[in-house]
Structures are given as C-alpha cells and as structure tokens.
Deep mutational scan, measured.
Amino acid sequence: MWEAGIQHIELEKGSKGLGFSILDYQDPIDPASTVIIIRSLVPGGIAEKDGRLLPGDRLMFVNDVNLENSSLEEAVEALKGAPSGTVRIGVAKPLP
C-alpha cells in the first residue's frame, strides 16, 4: 500500500538514463490490475545521487504520461521516450 499523496521529483536525464529499474506488481487493492514499482537504483546513477527515489516507490507518472493503470511496457516506453534533460516523475511512497 502507498500514500495517497504524490511526490513530484525532477531528475536530469543524461545518456545513461535516469538510473533506476521498474517492475510490475499485482495491485493489492485490485488484483485484476498492476502497479509500477521502482525495483532498484543503479549504483552511482542519477536517481541514487538525487536520493529521493527508493525501491518500493510506486511510479505514478513520467512527464505528462499517467502510469496509474499502465502496463510495464507502457511505463518502460514513457521512461525511454522521455527526452534528455529535466524529466518530471511522480511517485507514491509506501505506507510505513
């Protein structure tokens, strides 16, 4: 389960991407759907250096692409398709 509020994070995407990987996970509230979760951070990558994204965070959007009900493929496309420079990411943090 995740917090209702969405944290807005801006990262600078370079030639090596944003520095994290994702996975799809069965939604605990709606078993028929999936949620997109941050799986891991690349050591020394943009996301790890920034410090705000953590494994277990739920990915909600990338720039103007809503990922609340997306497939893993759609989420990967949104991340890979984001141009270099500032990328806006929304995440919901896990409940304590």
Results as ranks from 00 to 15, higher is better:
Lys16Ile: 06
Val91Glu: 00
Gly44His: 14
Pro94Ser: 11
Gly44Asn: 11
Ala4Cys: 08
Gln26Lys: 12
Lys16Glu: 05
Glu48Cys: 05
Gly17Ser: 05
Asp24Tyr: 02
Pro31Tyr: 09
Ser21Thr: 07
Leu54Ala: 15
Gly85Pro: 09
Lys93Tyr: 03
Asp27Gly: 10
Leu41Ala: 02
Leu67Thr: 10
Gly81Lys: 12
Arg88Gln: 08
Pro83Arg: 07
Glu68Met: 11
Ala78Cys: 09
Val42His: 15
Leu53Trp: 01
Leu53Val: 15
Asp50Phe: 02
Gly90Met: 02
Gly45Met: 05
Gly90Tyr: 02
Pro43Val: 10
Leu18Glu: 02
Asp30Ala: 09
Ala82Met: 12
Asn63Met: 03
Asn66Phe: 05
Asp57Thr: 10
Val91Cys: 11
Leu11Asp: 00
Gly56Tyr: 06
Gly44Asp: 15
Tyr25Cys: 13
Gly81Arg: 11
Pro55Asp: 04
Phe61Met: 14
Leu53Asn: 00
His8Arg: 15
Lys13His: 13
Glu77Asp: 12
Lys49Tyr: 08
His8Ser: 13
Ile37Trp: 03
Ala92Asp: 03
Ala32Phe: 11
Tyr25Gly: 13
Asn69Pro: 02
Ala32Asn: 14
Leu54Lys: 15
Gly90Trp: 01
Gly19Ser: 03
Leu18Trp: 05
Asn66Glu: 11
Gly81Ser: 14
Pro55Gly: 15
Ile38Asp: 01
Pro83Tyr: 06
Leu11Gln: 01
Ser21Pro: 01
Leu72Tyr: 11
Asp50Ser: 14
Asp27Tyr: 05
Ser70Arg: 12
Leu23Trp: 15
Leu72Trp: 04
Pro31Glu: 13
Pro28Asp: 14
Glu68Gly: 06
Asp57Pro: 01
Ile37Ser: 13
Ser70Met: 11
Ala82Ile: 10
Ile36Asn: 14
Val91Ser: 07
Ala47Ser: 05
Gly5Trp: 05
Lys93Glu: 03
Gly81Pro: 02
Ile9Leu: 09
Thr34Gln: 15
Asp27Phe: 06
Gly51Leu: 02
Gly5Thr: 11
Ser71Cys: 13
Gly51Glu: 04
Phe20Cys: 02
Ser71Pro: 11
Asp24Thr: 05
Thr86Tyr: 07
Ser33Asp: 13
Ile36Trp: 02
Gly5Ser: 12
Pro83Gly: 09
Pro83Glu: 06
Thr86His: 10
Gly19Leu: 01
Thr86Lys: 12
Arg88Cys: 13
Leu18Gly: 00
Ile89Trp: 01
Trp2Thr: 09
Asp27Arg: 05
Gly90Arg: 04
Leu53Gly: 00
Gly90Asp: 03
Gly81Val: 13
Ile6Glu: 03
Glu68Asn: 07
Leu11Met: 08
Gly45His: 04
Ala75Arg: 01
Val87Cys: 05
Glu77Phe: 13
Ser70Thr: 14
Gly5Gln: 09
Val35Cys: 10
Glu68Lys: 10
Pro31Ile: 08
Ile89Arg: 00
Ala4Trp: 03
Asp30Ile: 10
Asp30Asn: 14
Gly51Arg: 04
Thr86Gln: 12
Ile9Ala: 03
Ala78His: 08
Ile9Gln: 00
Leu72Ala: 15
Gly19Val: 00
Leu67Pro: 01
Val91Ile: 11
Lys80Asn: 14
Leu23Tyr: 13
Asp24Pro: 14
Asp30Met: 10
Ser15Asp: 06
Gly17Glu: 06
Pro55Gln: 15
Pro43Tyr: 04
Leu41Ser: 01
Ile89Ala: 01
Leu53Pro: 04
Gln26Phe: 10
Leu59Ser: 00
Arg39Ile: 04
Pro83Asn: 08
Pro94His: 15
Lys13Thr: 12
Ile38Met: 02
Ile46Trp: 04
Leu67Ser: 01
Gly44Thr: 05
Ser33Trp: 05
Arg88Asn: 09
Ala4Asp: 15
Gly81Ile: 11
Gly14Val: 06
Ala92Val: 13
Gly5Asn: 14
Leu23Arg: 15
Ala32His: 12
Ser40Tyr: 07
Thr86Met: 09
Leu54His: 13
Ser15Met: 12
Leu79Val: 10
Phe20Tyr: 00
Leu41Pro: 00
Tyr25Arg: 15
Leu67Glu: 00
Leu23His: 15
Gly51Trp: 00
Leu59Lys: 01
Asn66Cys: 09
Ala4Met: 10
Glu73Lys: 10
Ile36Gly: 01
Ala78Met: 09
Lys80Phe: 09
Ile46Lys: 12
Arg58Asn: 01
Gly17Asp: 11
Val76Asn: 12
Asp24Trp: 03
Val91Asp: 01
Leu72Val: 11
Val35His: 11
Asp50Gly: 06
Ser70Glu: 09
Gly85Lys: 07
Glu10Ala: 06
Pro28Arg: 11
Glu48Ala: 06
Ser33Met: 07
Gly44Val: 01
Asp50Val: 03
Gly17Thr: 05
Asp50Met: 03
Ile38His: 00
Leu67Met: 14
Ser21Lys: 05
Leu11Cys: 03
Ser40His: 09
Pro55Thr: 11
Ile22Thr: 03
Lys93Gln: 06
Phe20Met: 04
Lys93Asn: 04
Ala75Asn: 01
Ile36Ser: 03
Leu23Ile: 14
Met1Pro: 02
Thr34Ser: 13
Ala92Ser: 09
Ser84Arg: 08
Asp57Tyr: 10
Gln26Asn: 15
Pro31Asn: 13
Ile22Asp: 00
Thr86Asp: 05
Ile37Val: 15
Glu10Tyr: 08
Phe61Ser: 07
Val87Asp: 01
Leu41Glu: 01
Ile37Arg: 14
Ile6Ser: 08
Gly81Thr: 11
Asp24Ala: 05
Met60Ser: 04
Ile22Ala: 04
Ile29Lys: 11
Ser15Pro: 11
Gln26Ile: 08
Pro43Glu: 14
Gly81His: 13
Trp2Gly: 04
Pro43His: 09
Glu12His: 07
Lys16Ser: 06
Met1His: 12
Met1Thr: 04
Met1Asn: 15
Arg88Pro: 02
Val35Trp: 10
Tyr25Ala: 13
Ser15Leu: 14
Leu95Met: 14
Pro94Val: 05
Glu12Lys: 12
Asp50Leu: 02
Asn69Gln: 11
Gly17Phe: 02
Ala78Val: 12
Ala82Pro: 04
Thr86Phe: 11
Ala92Thr: 15
Leu72Glu: 15
Val42Met: 06
Gly90Ser: 09
Gly56His: 06
Val76Ala: 13
Pro83Ile: 05
Ala47Pro: 03
Arg88Leu: 13
Glu3Phe: 13
Thr34Val: 09
Thr86Pro: 11
Asp64Ser: 13
Leu59Pro: 00
Ile36Thr: 06
Lys49His: 10
Glu68Trp: 05
Gly14Pro: 06
Gly45Leu: 04
His8Pro: 11
Leu53Tyr: 00
Ile38Asn: 01
Ile9Pro: 00
Val87Ala: 05
Pro31Val: 07
Ile22Met: 08
Ala47Met: 02
Phe20Thr: 00
Glu48Asn: 04
Gln26His: 12
Ile46Val: 08
Leu79Phe: 07
Pro96Leu: 04
Glu10Leu: 11
Tyr25Gln: 15
Asp57Arg: 04
Ile89Cys: 05
Gly44Ala: 08
Met60Trp: 03
Ile22Gln: 01
Ile9Lys: 01
Val91Lys: 05
Pro43Trp: 03
Ala4Leu: 10
Trp2Asp: 11
Gln7Val: 11
Asp57Lys: 02
Arg88Trp: 06
Gly81Phe: 14
Gln7Phe: 06
Ala82Val: 10
Met1Leu: 03
Val91Leu: 10
Tyr25Asn: 15
Ala75Tyr: 01
Glu12Asp: 09
Leu23Met: 11
Leu11Asn: 00
Val35Met: 14
Ala32Met: 09
Ser33Ala: 14
Ala32Asp: 15
Val91Tyr: 11
Asp27Ile: 08
Asp64Gln: 12
Asp27His: 09
Val42Lys: 10
Pro28Tyr: 05
Leu67Trp: 02
Ser21Ala: 08
Val62Cys: 04
Pro96Ala: 11
Trp2Phe: 08
Leu18Asp: 01
Ile22Cys: 15
Pro43Ala: 15
Leu67Asp: 00
Met60Glu: 03
Ala75Cys: 15
Val91Arg: 05
Thr86Asn: 10
Gly44Ile: 01
Ile22Leu: 15
Asp64His: 13
Val35Ala: 15
Gln26Thr: 14
Asp64Trp: 04
Arg58Met: 02
Leu95Gly: 05
Leu23Lys: 15
Leu72Asn: 10
Asn69Tyr: 07
